[in-house]
Design a binder for these strands. Structure first.
Lengths: 209, 209
DNA sequence: CACTTGCCTAAGCGCTTGCTCACCTACAGG
DNA sequence: CCTGTAGGTGAGCAAGCGCTTAGGCAAGTG
């Protein structure tokens, strides 16, 4: 149901997870965590959604927290890849910032279930796993700050507070996962385009077509 | 500890809650919900923080969910008041939008524990309570949209997509509650000023001092 | 004084939780 | 044919959950 809608997007998700039973459990966990939150989700619920008995979960994952960590890790890897691809691309700073926001937002809207878990269940992770994930987030931050700094140096942007603006841009994009609704009026593409425009205005780039 | 820092802000919080024991429980619940989330917080934890036995909680509140509802209701009332005050104030649309964002963000940063509970534990509420709160949120949305519409009509703003931009502005402000940290480098005032500037850029208002 | 009222606790009930364990089945290799 | 391995189940344990109950104590009122 929910997962099917998400699958319609760009690529087959979680293709890297095997065997099949482990992937089905992980998909079920994403749905459950996104709908009810990590702590409100029971292992029986996850196993049930995957069509298995509660005990089957523990053949593929040591604990419920390991499931969350796997989801969080894969999601953050994807998010970082999106931002780094845009940051390392060709073109002006404005073009790269626009591409970064557009694709980052599109991912958060199109995979809003995964994104919700990835972005809002951070402190349900154990100590070690959380520090690992926080390191990935700092790299995402660096990628965006890099583009904005480039734009300022090139005279394309007018940004008095680069770290603050970087924070605001990422915050704006991430929060899409909270409010985006499949039944809503906007498609992920439309939100991406709108947000790219808004962010260019935030950095004082001359409006582009 | 955490509550003390929050108290340093504008006014004595939760002054409207009485008797004293009920207020202590509510403050304890805000801290606990903000730190660990509603579902991960136990009634024993809340009562313990308030220096009472677990059973004492049920003298003042029927259920744990009623505690969350009270917090959510008071918080949303406060947030709506802030936005309506700014929207109904004097001055140009740019001045009113700037004031709205500045005070709204200042509240989310200064009372980030309360704000976190208010903004991110919505679906832990029961059916009835949630619909009540959602109605308040729609009013907040209307207040901001009102200002932006005024600005467009007056020719002060250049906004192609008013509903979308309204959504983005509110989203940007709300997400402050997620990342704001007391130990961080920025004060609530500074974040408010930064965000007011960014939002004016988003609506294409001519830069003001 | 007796009696009510407001606020609180110790004990614990019924249930659900994350997780385990003994056992089952399908199938591949020798 | 036997045996090892991968992937599954039903039953259930210990712990913790939200919440209730019976009762205690201090202050206010007739």
């Amino acid at each position: 149901m929910g997962a099917a809608q998400e699958t319609l997007g760009e690529e087959q998700p979680w293709a890297e997870v095997s065997p099949d039973a482990a992937r089905r459990l992980l998909v079920a966990a994403v749905e459950a965590f996104a709908e009810r939150g990590y702590h409100a989700t029971t292992t029986r619920d996850i196993a049930g959604r995957a069509g298995m008995s509660p005990a089957a979960l523990y053949i593929h994952y040591k604990t419920k927290e390991e499931l969350l960590h796997r989801i969080s890790r894969l999601g953050h890897d994807k998010a970082l890849t999106i931002l780094r691809t845009a940051a390392d691309g060709d073109g002006t700073a404005a073009e790269r910032l626009s591409a970064a926001v557009r694709s980052f937002v599109r991912w958060h809207a199109g995979h809003h279930m995964t994104a919700r878990v990835v972005q809002y269940e951070l402190d349900a992770l154990g100590e070690e796993h959380r520090t690992e994930i926080v390191a990935l987030r700092r790299q995402s931050d660096a990628a965006v700050r890099e583009i904005i700094n480039d734009g300022v140096r090139a005279g394309e942007f007018d940004v008095p507070d680069v770290p603050g603006t970087t924070l605001a841009v990422l915050s704006l994009c991430i929060d899409v996962a909270r409010w985006f609704n499949v039944a809503g009026r906007r498609t992920p593409d439309e939100v991406g385009a709108l947000y790219a425009d808004l962010v260019l205005r935030m950095v004082g780039a001359s409006p582009q077509k």
